[in-house]
């Protein structure tokens, strides 16, 4: 099952604990990554509402200077966006299994 690789990666992404307090730079990097994945999902017309809200939560925490929280939320948003991209990609063929024939 090579396919479990992205799953493991996503897990690593969402649970990797921070060894030290996050900085603004950490937040900016995490946010940029999340934003770019979310944009890709939107371009595929498969954005999840939870990606949007989690990204907004990251921004709010970042604006308020709570970078630990901001980084955690941004990583979660990125994981959600990547999951939605994965979904859209696999559904390009997988939808046919649902079809009434």
């Amino acid at each position: 099952m090579k396919r479990s690789l992205p799953l493991a990666m996503l897990l690593a992404l969402s649970f990797a604990p921070m060894a030290r307090a996050a900085t603004e730079a950490d937040y900016k990097a995490a946010y940029a990554a999340a934003e770019s994945a979310s944009k890709e999902a939107a371009d595929m017309r498969n954005q999840w509402t939870t990606t949007v809200s989690t990204l907004a939560a990251a921004k709010k925490a970042g604006d308020g200077g709570d970078f630990d929280r901001a980084v955690t939320a941004a990583r979660e948003a990125e994981a959600l966006a990547k999951a939605s991209i994965f979904q859209a990609t696999s559904e390009k063929e997988a939808w046919k299994t649902m079809e009434i024939r």
Binding site: M1, R3, S4, L7, L10, L11, S14, T50, E76, A79, L80, A83, F86, Q87, S90, E91, E93, A94, K96, T97
Partner: peptide
Amino acid sequence: ARTALLLGSLSAALVAFALTS
């Protein structure tokens, strides 16, 4: 709960994929 959902949805997608590919 959210994480569980995310995992749930991912694994469902994975299963669907494994079934079709």
